[in-house]
């Protein structure tokens, strides 16, 4: 019984404390459903899902890097950059591959500077964030342009009355599940992160794991997930917008942290991250329905993040 309890609370578990945010989410959901009429409507459910989806996608990518004890502060910039590329006056057959080539290149630079050039991940991705934002503003100083019809359809279309968003969710979750739990890559991520968190950063390497290559791939994966989120957002706003991405950087970290993933690495779960993103989306949705101003929403999200990281005490002081 004690062991079961320990598992549920995230002690002695690799999944982290995800049960608490789940309960919080359910309680919040129930409360909103009872207290406001607008919440439990099909339209709002659709909105909620569309709001949560890009965050879920970015957060999954962010989680892979966080599990390695890293952090990717360039995901927001990648999202903006993606919308700017898609809003170029070019066919989707060119721009969509271009988006992924760019994402892979960015992830490759992030991963290489971190693993080969010994740069702290926060500094490396912070610098990348500035560079990508600069490029984005060169291409599109203010919101505008129009994304190809295909991209719009990908997001707003539906088959048999089921919105495409649902398929996006299924596809992304399946992909992430395969990467994290259904492959050696995923196990190696947990192994490397576990070594880093317990202070023996070369433990995984000693087991014969290609730790640098795995880390590099995780950064590339993170950028690609951000690009995917960017495509989704571009389809929704049907234009390019340099300002759409940056809030996602901190939101994704918040979602990951809420979901029980330890920022020191090695402990966390896919379902926890999805729960974390949903809780955050629910919070925004609830505040929107209650007409809370956008500024206060930002501040409240900051306070939530502060509370969550204060809850995660680590062994070492610092970044």
């Amino acid at each position: 019984m004690k062991a079961v309890f320990a598992h549920l609370t995230g002690q002695n578990s690799r999944q982290g404390l995800w049960i608490l945010p789940l309960i919080a989410g359910i309680v919040g959901f129930a409360w909103l459903a009872v207290s406001t009429d607008q919440f439990a409507t099909p339209q709002n459910a659709k909105n909620l899902l569309a709001q949560a989806m890009p965050l879920i996608i970015v957060a999954i990518g962010q989680m892979m890097v966080v599990l390695l004890g890293g952090l990717d502060l360039s995901v927001g910039a990648v999202i903006s950059f993606t919308t700017a590329i898609l809003a170029l006056d070019a066919p989707a057959a060119i721009t969509i591959p271009a988006v992924f080539i760019a994402a892979i290149a960015i992830g490759f630079i992030n991963g290489t500077t971190v693993t080969r050039l010994n740069v702290n991940p926060i500094i490396a991705t912070l610098a990348m964030q500035m560079i990508i934002m600069g490029l984005t503003r060169l291409m599109r100083p203010v919101a505008g342009g129009e994304v190809p019809e295909v991209v719009k359809q990908l997001v707003s279309g539906a088959v048999f009355g089921v919105p495409f968003t649902v398929f996006w969710g299924l596809l992304v979750c399946l992909l992430a599940w395969k990467m994290l739990y259904g492959s050696r890559f995923g196990l190696h991520i947990f192994a490397i992160g576990g070594g880093i968190a317990s202070g023996q950063s070369d433990a995984a390497h000693t087991f014969g794991i290609a730790d640098k290559r795995t880390t590099l791939l995780a950064y590339i994966g993170c950028s690609c997930f951000a690009a995917l989120a960017g495509i989704f957002l571009a389809g929704r706003i049907v234009s390019g917008d340099p300002n759409i991405g940056p809030p996602f950087t901190l939101d994704s970290v918040t979602a990951v942290a809420i979901g029980g993933t330890q920022l020191s690495g090695g402990v966390g779960s896919l379902h926890g991250t999805i729960i974390g993103a949903l809780v955050l989306a629910l919070l925004s949705n609830g505040m929107n329905l209650a007409n809370v101003s956008a500024f206060v929403q930002t501040a409240i999200k900051g306070a939530v993040l502060l509370a969550v990281v204060a809850f995660q005490s680590r062994k070492k002081i610092g970044l």
């Binding site: 395969k178 259904g182 196990l187 192994a191 968190a197 090695g266």
Partner: peptide, 22 residues
């Protein structure tokens, strides 16, 4: 590695692969 199971530690770096790379 403390966050992996005994079985995962035993096979780390030489994990057996089943269908579709799982």
């Amino acid at each position: 590695l403390p966050n992996l199971t005994i079985a995962e530690n035993m096979f780390l770096g030489r994990e057996p692969i089943a269908l579709f790379g799982t």
